[in-house]
């Protein structure tokens, strides 16, 4: 029973992280294409900005995935 609760916690942690990351990165990609369609000459700049903001968006899900892996394999 306790072990199943641990697996459930890991699944929730990783699943909710994945939802957050998917929404954030999806919005980011949409805005990137919008910006590129408006001003195609800004694509190189937008690409660097996209890289930086993607690092911000996926940091918390990465921590969630790490903790989930810890629960799965080490607890």
């Amino acid at each position: 029973m306790e072990q199943s609760l641990v697996y459930l916690a890991a699944a929730l942690m990783m699943g909710l992280s994945a939802i957050g990351a998917a929404v954030g990165i999806g919005m980011l990609g949409g805005k990137f294409l919008e910006g590129a369609a408006r001003q195609p000459e800004l694509v190189p700049l937008l690409r660097s900005q996209f890289f930086i903001v993607m690092g911000l968006v996926d940091a918390v899900p990465m921590i969630g995935v790490g903790l989930g892996m810890y629960l799965l394999f080490a607890v």
Partner: peptide
């Protein structure tokens, strides 16, 4: 093109997550 750049960025992000998961495990 912007579309190809976006596909490349998404692919590298997916690989990054995959590498992280495998490394943590």
């Amino acid at each position: 093109s912007p579309n190809t750049a976006l596909v490349e960025l998404y692919a590298s992000e997916i690989w990054k997550m995959g590498i992280s998961i495998v490394a943590f495990a």
